[in-house]
Design a protein around this nucleic acid. Structure first.
Lengths: 195, 195
DNA sequence: ACAAGAGGTTGAACTAGGTTAAGAAAGAAT
DNA sequence: ATTCTTTCTTAACCTAGTTCAACCTCTTGT
């Protein structure tokens, strides 16, 4: 049982790993323990690591010109987060990532990922499928944002991510849904009153 | 010069192809010519093909419970479209795809893609990078939808996709931006008056 | 114990964007 | 040429969601 075992199990669901591959993956992953509130990535800096969450919960958000934060995504166990654009292109990130709870993450540097994929091209498949699934989710979120009212979006958020409620303050859920905390409060009240 | 040559050139930018690979790719791509208005994919049916656009322009959209269409994405030359969720999971599609202009597309069936990737796993890389870039774009669109007003979104749409204006009626651009055609009209008027 | 924050709720006034309906402009079809 | 259809615009009115400010409840730190 080493520090990257949950990550290895996760990859193994998509691509069967050899012992050698497992060992190599373990060797390039940097385990990191973060406390609630800690930054894992800061906007303005070039993102250096792909971030994999083993336990706890992170949130990645964009801060606009009026200093308002907008939640891009939450990440709980077995999810990735971080600014792909920044890390792949080497440009400063527009997102910050912070821990919403004490969490254990694995950091995979850009260089390590490249080395990994060069050495074991089979693993491209893991990331391909990961990104493919994320794409489906993101497009659904865009469309739902355009076609569904706030209350409907809130209801389906709760159905889709019931486990997040334990970690995530309502104001961040509001932000994720694209509404203000005050309005989410009203939505919740209406839903309570109805049943 | 065969029917898939533009597609092969596109892949070749990411992964250097051998002659054998090129030949195989050509053999599994189904070229299709569609006229403006034609459907390439219909919601309710299981999507059978990944759709690559060689020329022209397609749009993929979701029709909500009130029969209102919401544009998920446009696809011009060298872009892919189609409902990934439907094709990968074999469930009925929630999106339809139609030609906004006479277009030439290549269809890659689910089976052919699987065969391709099994035979030449190197090509996973092409799709991985494709999806990775799409993910960046989608997330940016979500965040912009939450942080920028309609006029700002319209301006950056025009900057980002100047070539689309020739193909795409304003009402679909409005839909893509998440506003009504009437409101886009107001936005355009305001921008005209200002300069 | 106390203060100081952070998160959540409420309500009143406001606004970005939606709705409805009608007309103008521009293609496409006969 | 002229009709038909689709796209775009305008204007009056409407509403989902915002803003601002006050207040309440928990935590957290001292």
């Amino acid at each position: 049982m080493n520090t990257a075992s949950s990550f290895i199990a996760h990859i193994n669901e998509t691509v069967q790993l050899t012992e050698e591959e497992k060992q190599f993956i373990s060797s390039i992953c940097l385990p990191l323990t973060v406390r609630q509130g800690d930054f894992v990535e800061r906007s303005g800096e070039v993102t250096r690591y792909y971030i994999y969450v083993q336990s706890g919960c992170l949130m990645t958000y964009f801060t606009d010109k009026d200093a308002v934060d907008h939640v891009a995504q939450f990440a709980t166990a077995r999810w990735w987060t971080g600014d792909l654009h920044s890390i792949t292109k080497g440009i400063p990130s527009i997102y910050s990532t912070r821990a919403l709870a004490d969490s254990e993450v694995l950091l995979l540097s850009k260089h390590s990922q490249e080395e990994l994929l060069e050495k074991y091209p089979r693993l491209e498949r893991y990331f391909r499928i990961l990104y493919q699934n994320a794409l489906v989710t993101h497009l659904h979120r865009i469309i739902q944002g355009h076609s569904a009212a706030a209350d409907e979006r809130y209801i389906s958020f709760r159905e889709k991510y019931p486990s997040l409620e334990q970690y995530v303050p309502l104001k961040y859920i509001a932000s994720y849904l694209g509404i203000t905390p005050e309005f989410l409060s009203k939505v919740r009240r209406r839903l309570m009153e109805k049943g």
